[in-house]
Amino acid sequence: MFESRVLPVKNKLFRFAFRLLGSSEEAKDVVQEVFIKVWNGRDQMESIENMEAWCMRITRNLSLDKIRSRQRKATDPIEESFDIQNDTQTPYEAAENNENMQRINQLIASLPEKQRQVMHLRDIEGYSYNEICEILELDMNQVKVNLFRARNSVREKFIKINAYGL
C-alpha cells in the first residue's frame, strides 16, 4: 500500500520541494519527512481522497517551514540554484548547463513564492487547475492570476535578456 501509492510520487515531491528550496539535499530531507508523516498516519490513508495532492501539500508546507527556519536573505534561493550543478550530473542535468536553461531557472527562482509554485505545478508537473487549488489551498481565481503573472513575467524577462543581453 505504502510502496504502491506513495513511493511512486517521490520524484514529484522531490521536484516540488527542490523548486521551493533550491537545494537538492534539503529537498531530499523534506521528501523523507513527508514519507515518515505518511507512514505514521497510514491507518488513515484510506480516508484521503487524493493521496498525491495530499502529499504535495505536506511537501509544500514542510518546505515553507524550512525556508522560514533558514532565516537568510531573500536572495539566497536564487544563489543556491547555481549550486545545483555541483551535484553529480545526470544527462538531464548536463543539458541544464545550457546557458538558456540556467537563465530560465533563475527567472523562475526569482518569481514570487505563489507564482513559482503555481507555474511549477502546471507547466512542469502538468496538474489540472483543480488539483493545484487543492495542493496550494487557493481558489481557482488566485491560481489563474498567479499562473498568468508567472508565465508573462518569465516570458518578458527572457525576451529582454535575449534581445539586449542583459
Binding site: R15, Y92, N100, M101, I104, N105, I124
Partner: peptide, 12 residues
C-alpha cells in the same frame, strides 16, 4: 527554450 526547460525539469 521555455518548454524545453520544463521538459528537462520534469525528468529531475
Amino acid at each position: 527554450e521555455l518548454f524545453r526547460f520544463f521538459e528537462v525539469e520534469r525528468k529531475r
